[in-house]
Each structure stands twice: as structure tokens, then as C-alpha cells.
Amino acid sequence: MLPIRCPWCGEREQTEFSYGGEAHIVRPTDSADLTDAEWGDYVFFRTNPRGLHYERWFHAFGCRRWFNMARDTVSGAIHGTYRPGEPRTDVPDAPRVPVAGGDGGEG
């Protein structure tokens, strides 16, 4: 269980939150002018990086605010959380490599 710092309520346990997918995906306002591929890119495609990931969380059991988190998908390390509209948490050294193929786990 991750301890997550809600930008409003402070640190709470993960069970108070729900996950909301990749952050910083802006909804196109000119959707009528987009090709199916361009629209599909917005609706269906995510970067799914191995490493630093900017993602959305929702403080469902708390203040019911959405916020963003910079989290390493390999180590699980949370580099920071910030409110929508605020600049991304800067993580200069974090790797951000798109996944190529499967990554074998252990049973």
C-alpha cells in the first residue's frame, strides 16, 4: 500500500485513492477535424512507459479531488504529486523508456 500525498489533504493511505490513468492528455477541442487515427490516438493510446510515468489519481475517500503524480513504474517510487494545472514534478534523472515487449516476471 502506497502512502500518497494528496496535494490538499496531505499524506493518506492508498486505499483512499483510485487510479486515473495517464496524466496530461488534453482532450482535443477540434475533434470534428481529426482523422479517426488522430482521435483514436487520444482515446485509446497511452505511453505506458517503463520508468517515469505521470499519472492521475483521485482522492475518492477524501476531498474528492483529482491530482497528478510522478511515479516510477519500475521501482514504484513516487517522485511527487501536484495539482491539475501545476507544472509537472521535475524528475531530471528518472528513466522514461517505452516498454518494448514483455518483461518476464517471477512466479
Binding site: 493518506r12 483512499e16 475517500f61
Partner: peptide, 9 residues
């Protein structure tokens, strides 16, 4: 605080 007790908000 808004939080939870087991399953209850």
C-alpha cells in the same frame, strides 16, 4: 478528515 473505516467512507 474524510477517510474510511474498512469499507465505509
Amino acid at each position: 478528515a474524510q477517510t474510511r473505516f474498512v469499507a465505509s467512507a
